[in-house]
């Protein structure tokens, strides 16, 4: 029995230690923590071309937001600052932020009043707006045409509410990420995919035979989110963002990712 006990309880102890070791993140000043560790954990997306997409060759996530996060990290913490990335989806990013898994979320997140009750936003860093992606031969030209039709979206995005407002009779199906939503569009599960124009431009670029229509039917600027009340962190992000916009880094990154993308204009985006 002694032997049995030893064998049984050892792994349990390991499990206990492993779960307890990560305690105690609540109510601390995130900025002081990242400043001390010289390290920021960013919540990002891995399913959106141009913003953040997993490169199958390297397994790493690449995109505008990745570059911006790295630049912000250096700007805030100096040359020694390092960034690491946690993949989030539209429906996991807020819980992960509130739970302390990530220090800040830079993941195509639109600033909305409802979300502002849950998290603190930086100044907008990208002026996105909801738009539509349809097959080239589609008869749909704007959001009103979606009434009585099925439109596809991603769980937890603002585009869902925007469709409900602009086309109340549309039926909305929601998926966990853009890969699944786009696969569903190709499987004819709906007539259009709706989300922000920047994301759709990226999706259109990799999927021949699909186009953006209807222009922007609702403004949805992106902000960087930190947990509610972490104003210190938000202020430092704002300051760093302003510096990047002033020294030309921001424009350089924008051009690197968005220059020449069909259906997307840099006019009014560049600072």
């Amino acid at each position: 029995m002694k032997k049995l006990r030893k064998y049984l309880f050892l792994p349990l102890l390991v499990l206990l230690a492993f779960t307890l070791s990560a305690c105690g993140h609540k109510d601390q000043n995130v900025y002081q923590k990242v400043e001390a560790n010289k390290h920021i954990v960013w919540g990002v997306r891995a399913d959106t071309r141009l913003f953040g997409l997993t490169n199958v060759k390297t397994g790493k996530i690449e995109g505008f937001e990745m570059d911006l996060a790295k630049a912000l990290t250096k700007q805030m913490l100096g040359k020694k600052g390092t960034a690491s990335f946690v993949t989030t989806t539209a429906n996991t990013r807020i819980p992960l932020l509130k739970n302390g898994n990530v220090d800040a979320v830079l993941a195509t997140m639109t600033i909305t009043p409802e979300r502002a009750k849950q998290v603190t936003f930086s100044k907008p860093y990208f002026p996105a707006g909801s738009s539509l992606l349809v097959p080239n031969n589609s008869k749909i030209t704007n959001v009103k045409d979606l009434n009585n039709k099925t439109v596809l979206a991603v769980k937890g995005t603002t585009a869902v509410d925007d469709v409900h407002k602009s086309a109340p009779k549309a039926r909305v199906l929601q998926y966990d990420d853009y890969g699944q939503a786009m696969s569903a569009l190709k499987a004819n599960q709906g007539v259009a995919l709706t989300t922000d124009n920047g994301l759709l431009a990226g999706i259109a670029q990799e999927n021949k035979g699909y186009k953006l229509v209807g222009g922007v039917y609702s403004d949805a600027p992106y902000g960087i989110a930190v947990d509610k009340g972490q104003t210190d962190m938000a202020n430092h992000i704002d300051k760093a963002l302003k510096q990047l916009q002033a020294n030309g880094t921001y424009n350089r990154l924008l051009k690197k990712w968005f220059a020449g993308i069909p259906g997307f204009s840099l006019k009014g985006v560049l600072k």
Partner: peptide, 22 residues
Amino acid sequence: AFVAGFDLMYQAQLIAFSTFQT
């Protein structure tokens, strides 16, 4: 829930991420 089947789990996800009361 993975294929927008409108079952309990799908509805749960939508409610969780609109109320933020996960």
